[in-house]
């Protein structure tokens, strides 16, 4: 069976979520690998949300919201953008390729862009493979899946 990545998508209520809706209404085809969590604004997305998603077994995380200047709370997407830049640098320190985390600006009229972004991400994640490094290895260490190795670290 081929690997089907799991993507958690945090979508802002006003733009990206509406775009996802539009993609559905327009019957656009896109992979069903994404699990959508609706937030009022991307500015609400705390780095812990993203880390929690990875730690809980997501292979990729998408944060999508309004275009610059289009945020319904003025500057939520700017905040998200700065945080994203830094988080993208932090993740590789911990065995998570930065490509697994993506920020996109998707307007409510861009159903097609939403479908395309999800498709692209799925393709990329299939090449990267499952996120063994963090989720599964940590889970192993926790003794959730199988035996934890003795001592510290490296429970591959």
């Amino acid at each position: 069976m081929s690997f089907e990545p799991k993507i958690i998508g945090f979508l802002c209520n006003w733009c990206a979520y509406t775009a996802a809706d539009l993609a559905g209404i327009s019957r656009l085809k896109y992979p069903d690998n994404i699990r959508i969590i609706r937030v009022m604004c991307t500015g609400r997305i705390e780095p812990s949300f993203v880390l929690k998603a990875f730690a809980s077994g997501a292979d990729g995380v998408l944060v999508a919201g309004c275009h610059p200047g289009g945020c319904h709370y003025q500057e939520g997407n700017y905040k998200a953008y700065k945080r994203t830049l830094l988080l993208k640098k932090l993740l590789p320190q911990f065995g998570i390729a930065s490509e697994r985390f993506r920020l996109e600006f998707i307007a409510s009229s861009e159903g097609e862009k939403f479908a395309r972004v999800v498709g692209e991400m799925v393709g990329q994640l299939k090449i990267l493979g499952p996120l063994q490094t963090a989720a599964v290895r940590i889970a192993e260490l926790d003794g959730l899946f199988g035996e934890a190795e003795g001592g510290t670290g490296g429970g591959r």
Binding site: Q93, F94, G95, A134, R137, G153, G154
Partner: peptide, 8 residues
């Protein structure tokens, strides 16, 4: 490897 370092 960096992950392993931090993990440890």
């Amino acid at each position: 490897d960096r992950y392993d370092f931090w993990q440890k």
